[in-house]
């Protein structure tokens, strides 16, 4: 099925979870935060949160900033 990850279309398995998506998109980052359709998904809930076709996911990581 298709979801949107950080603004780009992405193909994921029909039974994919947030945890699997994060693992695929956040190589090299340990402090990551996830928003699913505009709501925060706490790290503790990633593995229990299934994705649905059309979901919009933001996978965020630290960067420099004032």
């Amino acid at each position: 099925m298709q979801v949107t990850v950080n603004g780009a279309a992405a193909e994921v398995a029909d039974d994919a979870t947030v945890a699997e998506l994060v693992a695929a998109h956040s190589t090299g980052h340990d402090r990551v935060a996830v928003a699913l359709n505009g709501d925060v998904v706490p790290r503790t809930g990633w593995a229990q949160t299934p994705l649905t076709a059309g979901d919009s996911v933001e996978v965020l990581a630290p960067t420099a900033g004032g």
Binding site: H25, S26, H29, R31, V59, L60, A61, P62, T63, G65
Partner: peptide, 17 residues
């Protein structure tokens, strides 16, 4: 020290932290 959050592909690697 202030830091920011951005999409992973645009963010600094973990080394800044």
């Amino acid at each position: 020290v202030t830091v920011a959050l951005r999409r992973v592909e645009a963010s600094a690697s973990g080394s800044m932290l």
